[in-house]
Design a protein around this nucleic acid. Structure first.
Lengths: 142, 142
DNA sequence: TATACGATCTACAGCAACTGTAGGTTCAAG
DNA sequence: CTTGAACCTACAGTTGCTGTAGATCGTATA
């Protein structure tokens, strides 16, 4: 049995983040000492490790909740798990594509600017102009 | 002179977003009709276009504020503008690198799973394990 | 056993960058 | 002059945490 601080250190999580996960029902309510401090065991350590590792892979808390629910029914088909992972992969790939387009435009913008004064700066001009825009009326990357 | 709705349509912005930009001081307080409705001109249209285009390129509102301030002093050196753009480029490149690592790991994870039952699912196993992790105790992509 | 002090507790505010809602008012076309 | 779409303010909600204040707890050391 160990404290929230120890759990935090072992998983590379902030103490507040663990309490937050508990609050939103992602982590279970743990046992308490007589004084009211949380005490954890290896089950909680594993669960939190799973959550953190999934977060590192970019999964949303919603997706992680789904994965945790699925892993609780070991006899079910793993097609659903696969679907969650596939969706995440597609999202990651979409973000990469978007960022690569940004990179191209930023590089071009920067390389075109050889000005001295702000007045002649191509960067600001490009930013002002909507010509050659990636695409109009699109959401910025989140 | 046109309404906030017209400005919104012309720049692909939501009406509330424009009011939000005004609230945080990114857009100026415009003139009003006798009834109290906002009226805009071409100056505001240009400024909002600049903001939206910059957002599309991934600049934060803070960075945009900086760029707008810089563009107000046309005689200054454009080195600072360049620095802001360079920083943004580096951030974009860092995000791409991170996402590409995620893509590799997600692909590997998915391809390794040929199980039927959740109990044997490699995806969940990989997520549970910290072995072969990208890196421990690292922040998830924002 | 007493004390000190770091760790933990709750509760709430705040971050980015918006988006949505409720309840009321104004503008412009017909 | 009516109607209804567009506008107004004010505030709550989103995601995933992070930080703060002020009080309490736990344990190592004297």
């Amino acid at each position: 049995m160990f404290s929230i601080g120890t759990l935090a250190k072992r998983t590379g999580t902030k103490v507040q983040t663990i309490r937050y996960y508990e609050q939103i029902g992602l982590m279970p309510e743990p046992g308490r000492t007589d004084g009211g401090q949380r005490r954890y065991g290896d089950v909680e350590l594993d669960r939190l490790s799973f959550i953190r590792h999934s977060r590192q892979l970019g999964f949303s808390l919603g997706a992680i909740r789904e994965l945790l629910d699925l892993s609780d029914s070991p006899e079910r088909s793993c097609a659903q798990v696969d679907a969650v992972a596939q969706k995440q992969l597609r999202e990651v790939e979409a973000r990469i594509a978007r960022l690569e387009a940004l990179r191209v435009e930023l590089r071009r913008m920067i390389s075109e600017c050889n000005a001295e004064r702000v007045a002649d700066c191509r960067i600001l001009e490009v930013l002002r102009d909507h010509e050659g825009c990636l695409s109009d009326h699109q959401q910025p990357t989140p």
